[in-house]
Simulated scan of single mutants.
Amino acid sequence: RLPLVCAQNGVENERLALRRFREVYGMCVVLPCSHLNPGEVVAPCGPNTGALVIGRYGTGPDDTARRIADDLEKARFLAPVAADVMRWKYGKLLGNHANVVEAVCGSASDGAARDLVARAQAEGAATLDAAGIAYASGPEITELRGGTVDPQPIPGQRARSSSWQSLARGAGSIETDYLNGEIVLLGRQHGVPTPVNAALQHAARESVRQSREPGGLTAEELSRRITAGVTG
């Protein structure tokens, strides 16, 4: 009988939760922060800590979503209520394609790593288009947080993706199967080749299995694997 809000990356939770909960809400989380040490979360943005787009899964906004949003805004979060929250989550999914590159390679900012991210995102966009799935654009997500969720640098701290943090903490798992893996799944369903995302997904699982820290593979090595068809 309780409403359930799914506030993780990816787009699978809501569908799974609806089997057991009548009221399921999606939440697109734009919240740059770090959790590397037990009990310590660094959230370096202001004037709002993050942007949390919320909406009822499948049926759009309702009074419960608005009440949750009101409470979040009192706690210094930007919390717009959306009629199409999954469109925002699919847009975030494409942005999250950079996560695994940063995690496996240690950075997503050099030339070879940026190329991998661009190729993975191009596959993602082509796959979502083939599946007829709407997604928010990168500029829309940037505009959402512009001027309201701005980085306030903290000495000694550097913003890292959630996937990078999973490897750094030695968490034993990583979210890639539900980010790049979602695109691989949809590509197989709709006949769209996704070799880049499949190779990145394989590299992420390998990094977890071998307990690698971030940066265990270079972007050049990953590119060679894609050319060789090493996708798990």
Rank of each mutant, 00 (worst) to 15 (best):
Val53Arg: 02
Gly187Ala: 13
Trp164Cys: 09
Tyr135Ala: 13
His97Leu: 15
Cys28Lys: 01
Leu78Cys: 08
Leu52Lys: 01
Ile174His: 01
Leu116Ser: 09
Asp70Trp: 01
Ala118Pro: 08
Arg66Glu: 10
Ala125Met: 10
Cys28Tyr: 02
Pro151Asn: 09
Gly39Phe: 05
Glu23Lys: 10
Ile174Tyr: 01
Asn9Leu: 08
Cys105Tyr: 00
Thr49Asp: 14
Gly181Asn: 07
Cys6Val: 09
Val230Glu: 14
Tyr135Ile: 07
Pro195Leu: 15
Pro47Tyr: 08
Ile133Phe: 04
Pro32Gly: 10
Arg19Trp: 04
Tyr25Glu: 06
Gln210Tyr: 02
Arg205Leu: 13
Ala103Phe: 05
Arg1Phe: 09
His35Cys: 13
Glu23Arg: 08
Arg15Asn: 11
Ala198Tyr: 00
Ser207Arg: 00
Pro47Lys: 02
Ala118Lys: 05
Ala134Phe: 07
Gln165Val: 11
Gly216Thr: 05
Glu175Phe: 06
Asp177Ile: 06
His35Met: 13
Leu144Asn: 00
Ala112Trp: 00
Ile133Gly: 13
Asn197Ile: 06
Ala17Met: 15
Arg67His: 07
Ile54Glu: 01
Val196Asp: 05
Tyr135Thr: 06
Gly60Asn: 03
Tyr90Gln: 04
Arg1Tyr: 03
Val42Trp: 01
Glu14Asp: 13
Glu182Thr: 15
Leu116Trp: 00
Val149His: 03
Ala75Gly: 10
Gln157Cys: 12
Val11Pro: 01
Arg114Pro: 05
Glu73Arg: 10
Gly91Leu: 06
Ala43Gln: 12
Ala199Lys: 00
Ile154Gln: 11
His35Gly: 10
Ser109Glu: 14
Leu222Val: 14
Pro214Ala: 07
Leu72Val: 14
Tyr25His: 04
Thr59Pro: 01
Ile154Val: 14
Leu78His: 02
Val101Ser: 07
Ser109Val: 13
Gly170Asn: 05
Glu123Lys: 02
Ser163Trp: 00
Arg225Phe: 12
Arg212Met: 13
Leu186His: 04
Ile226Leu: 12
Arg225Ile: 14
Gly170Gln: 04
Gly215Lys: 02
Gly10Ser: 12
Asp110Gln: 02
Val85Met: 12
Gly55Asn: 00
Thr142Met: 14
Val29Met: 08
Ala159Phe: 10
Tyr135Val: 04
Arg19Asp: 11
Gly172Tyr: 02
Gly46Pro: 05
Ser207Ile: 03
Ala126Asp: 14
Leu94Val: 12
Ser163Thr: 15
Gln210Arg: 12
Leu18Lys: 05
Ser207Leu: 06
Gly232His: 00
Ser173Ala: 14
Ser173Trp: 11
Arg20Asn: 07
Val42Ala: 08
Val11Asn: 00
Arg87Ser: 08
Ala82Pro: 01
Val149Trp: 03
Arg22Thr: 07
Asn96Ser: 11
Ile154Asp: 07
Gly232Pro: 06
Tyr178Cys: 06
Val196Ala: 08
Arg212Glu: 13
Lys92Trp: 05
Pro153Cys: 13
Ala103Lys: 01
Arg160Glu: 12
Tyr90Lys: 03
Leu144Glu: 00
Arg114His: 03
His190Cys: 14
Leu16Val: 11
Arg224Glu: 15
Gly216Ser: 13
Ser109Tyr: 12
Pro153Phe: 08
